[in-house]
């Protein structure tokens, strides 16, 4: 019995979420008194693999087959499954991001395991194994009991955080036994978002709504986000109008996020939007309408014009940063 965590990389570097997953896996294994191992798929150098040791991982399996770069869901599920069998894993942890969501259900079937997706924090109890997750798209929490011998979890990003625990990590080469025919996802082109904070990774998110009136008015919002090292997001009407890309839409049918700080600028706060952001630790709302529902969800609010408020926000942040 052990805990296995699948730590994802991008171009050979671990994603931030992988270190959170490692921290989580170590804490979970400790609470269940089980050993813990990490799995890395694709070409990641030893110096990068060793970084997992900083979060308490003592054992790392690595299969450097370049086919994994295709992000073929079935192939990755096969590989994680093979590693889980090798490690004798009874709990397998993935990220609740695009790749984790794609792989986890396939993996669960291979391992005859129950799956809980979008888990928040450590289990409520480990025997029976009960975890907490958002349901009704952020409007409530549910407690899910996983009753199978092997359990698969996807962890909601930012729900646990990073916990450093310096450990010497041993690296073991692992061959999941995949051949080129397993990688049947043919990539024609990749459009990489560079120089921007990934929305799911962001600790601060600055989000704009219809109150910004046009896609051309995002300059100050982006300036504030850049100053704060924040991700940018938007409400549904904004992405429907094509002012911002769909990937930025948070709320029902878009993304569910849980940053430390969420700025809702010119967003009225329809129930569908609130579901996607209500787990944020602190919410700031700026809206012209004092009756806007966003103020019921917010911790700090300003009734006013976004275009008058944004320059003051930017100045104040600059002052704090230079202090």
């Amino acid at each position: 019995m052990s805990v296995l965590v699948y730590t994802e990389n991008w171009d050979g570097k671990f994603k931030k979420v992988s270190f959170e997953l490692a921290s989580y896996a170590v804490a979970l294994a400790e609470s269940m008194q089980l050993p813990v191992a990490a799995l890395s798929l694709g070409s990641v150098e030893a110096s990068e693999l060793e970084k997992l040791g900083a979060y308490g991982i003592s054992k790392i399996y690595t299969d450097t087959n370049e086919g994994f770069n295709s992000l073929d869901n079935q192939a990755i599920a096969k590989a994680v499954s093979a590693a889980a069998v090798k490690a004798g894993a009874t709990v397998v942890i993935l990220a609740h991001n695009n790749l984790g969501k794609a792989v986890a259900p396939r993996l669960a079937v291979r391992l005859k395991a129950g799956l809980a997706a979008g888990v928040q924090g450590l289990p409520v109890t480990t025997s029976p194994f009960v975890v907490k997750k958002l349901v009704f798209t952020g409007k409530a929490f549910g407690h899910v009991s996983i009753n199978s011998t092997v359990k698969v979890l996807t962890l909601a990003p930012n729900s646990f955080g990073l916990v450093e625990k310096a450990t010497a990590a041993s690296i073991e080469t692992f061959d999941a036994g995949l051949v080129s025919a397993d990688f049947a996802t043919t990539i024609e082109s990749t459009n990489k978002v560079t120089g921007k904070i990934l929305l799911q990774d962001a600790e601060i998110v600055v989000s704009g709504g219809r109150g910004l009136k046009s896609g051309e008015n995002w300059g100050q919002l982006e300036e504030l986000a850049a100053l704060l090292g924040a991700g940018t997001a938007c409400s549904r009407p904004v992405s429907d109008e094509g002012w911002r890309p769909h990937g930025e839409h948070v709320g029902q049918t878009g993304k569910i996020i849980a940053p430390n700080l969420y700025f809702a600028l010119g967003i009225s706060g329809a129930i569908q939007h609130l579901g996607g952001v209500s787990s944020s630790k602190v919410i700031v709302a700026v809206n012209k309408d004092p009756e806007a529902p966003i103020f019921e969800a917010a911790d700090y609010g300003i009734v006013g014009d976004v275009f008058k408020v944004l320059p003051q926000f930017i100045e104040a942040v600059k002052t704090i940063k230079s202090a």
Binding site: A108, K112, A113, G114, L115, A116, V130, V135, K139, A140, F141, G142, H143, V144, S145, I146, N147, S148, S278, V284, A285, V286, F295, E296, A297, A298, D299, Y300, G301, I302, V303, G304, D305, K308, V309, Q312, F313, E315, A316, V317, T319, I320
Partner: peptide, 30 residues
Amino acid sequence: HTAFVGFELPAPKAACKMIAEDQAGELINL
């Protein structure tokens, strides 16, 4: 393999602290 055993609604939020439009910088300080 799984079953929901309980549900909870989010704790109600404390009232939103309001700041005047021309004092927006104060919100950042808070």
